[in-house]
Design a protein around this nucleic acid. Structure first.
Length: 295
DNA sequence: GCCCAGGAGAAGG
DNA sequence: CCTTCTCATGGG
């Protein structure tokens, strides 16, 4: 990844370790120099932050593998650089001391605005699965059925068009288990209108309820996966995906019964409102990485 | 052998 | 509406 690269002001709230390791994406790997290489929007990129006094924050963000034009049209939005996370953190900290602690621990987390189809695929694979195997399955889907990039062994995830023409048994090489059927069925459903409905959901004029309703009509997409897709790729930041880790953290920190998903969701809606999904990321990270030591 | 992993779908109350 | 069982796969 030598030629093209773009460097810009890096916000205070931008930590590559937290962004790529808070569970929102699965296809980035950390390099020895602390940068991350990953595949998103069908492209291989490398992301790095450095001290740089040219910017008011004293730091620069560098994305390698993209041109200025691509950066402006795609990656600035992907990294959510127009959003002021400092302000969001302040708002969340005003709610209570519990979220305040999680927010301060997770400073630097930032929601990526990922591609809808890549996110659908990723989170269908994620269900009842663990992160190393999720990554393995996605990489296998990419290597067996995805578009090649300029880098060997780093294909993009397969399109819904490609997958819609395959059968469940064709995917057996990827070791997806029972999720193979979900993927071919969902690819066929999304392909029916060339993906128009799925991609239209990213519009701010589409409500969260409308987006979740369509997503849950897809095979293998239930409440949790739909909330992840809507949050991570459709900018529905009020979504509060409840998984085993969130149940755990809501039990430890707020005293909820882990079976009381409805109670957890309504509490999140009232307390965090439009920033529910961002609060969820702080809580998720806090629970997973602090665990017993301080929680 | 067991249990678990960022759950969903189907069946039976 | 709710609860419970099953669904591949691999690692601990």
């Amino acid at each position: 990844m030598n030629e093209k690269s773009v460097t810009c002001r890096c916000p205070d709230e931008f930590d590559v370790d937290l962004i790529f390791d808070c569970g929102q994406c699965f296809r980035y790997i950390k390099n020895d120099d602390g940068s991350y290489t990953g595949i998103a929007n069908g492209k291989v990129i490398r992301v790095r932050t450095d001290e740089d006094e040219r910017f008011d924050t004293g730091r620069a963000l560098t994305v390698c593998g993209v041109s200025e034009e691509e950066f402006e049209s795609v990656w600035k939005n992907y990294f959510d650089l127009e959003t002021d996370y400092g302000k969001i953190m302040e708002r969340l900290c005003e709610r209570d001391s519990v979220i305040e602690k999680a927010v301060k621990y997770g400073k630097g987390i930032r929601l990526l605005r990922q591609d809808p189809w890549e996110t659908v695929l990723s989170f269908i694979v994620s269900q009842n699965n663990n992160i190393p195997r999720i990554t393995g399955c996605l990489n296998s889907l990419a290597e067996n059925f995805g578009e090649k990039t300029e880098y060997e062994g780093m294909n993009a995830l397969p399109s819904f068009e490609t997958l819609s023409e395959l059968e469940e048994s064709d995917l057996s090489v990827c070791r997806l288990g029972y999720r193979a059927k979900y993927i071919t069925e969902t690819a066929k459903a999304v392909s029916k209108d060339g993906g128009d409905i799925l991609y239209s959901l990213a519009s701010p004029s589409v409500t969260t309820e409308e987006a979740l309703s369509y997503l849950q009509s897809l095979s293998g997409v239930g409440p949790k996966v739909a909330n992840c897709i809507a949050l991570f790729s459709l900018n529905k930041t009020d979504c509060f995906p409840v998984d085993v880790w969130v149940k755990r953290v809501m039990n430890r920190l707020y005293g909820f019964d882990e079976k009381d998903v409805r109670g957890i969701k309504s509490f999140a809606a009232e307390t965090f409102g439009r920033y529910g999904g961002i609060a969820q990321q702080y809580l998720f990270y806090y629970m997973r990485y602090v665990k017993g030591s301080d929680v």
